[in-house]
Nucleic acid binder design. Structure first.
Length: 107
DNA sequence: TGCTTGACAGAAG
DNA sequence: CCTTCTGCCAAGC
């Protein structure tokens, strides 16, 4: 299986996003890894950008590896703050304390 | 068909 | 900390 199947990949990403607890964030690369396609981080970004609003996914809880929020989405930082996500002085999420570690939810 | 783009990641300067 | 570069891949043109 050299290439991801579009629909399956998108579905997996979406379902995982719904499992992100409030006040926590996950990186694009992490989602790609969990989905089984470690090298499709960019595909995750594309998927989240085209999420049907009707799904009401907490996609604001997804940031890049540096904790940087999505460019052009001014509301995202505010949404995260309202959930108690820790931000650093430079405007990036403090991944040390706010990163969601999926394995913890199974323990 | 081939080049450009991007809600990425990681390393380098 | 920020910018630039490379590797990565699918979508748009």
């Amino acid at each position: 299986m050299p290439r991801p199947q579009h629909d399956t990949f998108y579905s997996d990403i979406y379902s995982m996003v719904t499992q992100i607890p409030a006040g926590r964030v996950v990186t694009y690369g992490e989602l790609a890894r969990l989905a089984g396609w470690p090298q499709h981080a960019r595909m995750v970004g594309r998927a989240l950008r085209e999420v049907p609003p009707a799904l009401h996914l907490p996609c604001h809880r997804v940031v890049n590896a540096a904790g940087r929020t999505a460019p052009g989405w001014v509301e995202q930082p505010q949404l995260l703050r309202s959930e108690g996500v820790a931000f650093k002085s430079n405007g990036c999420v403090d991944m040390r304390v706010s990163a969601w570690k999926p394995l913890e939810s199974f323990v």
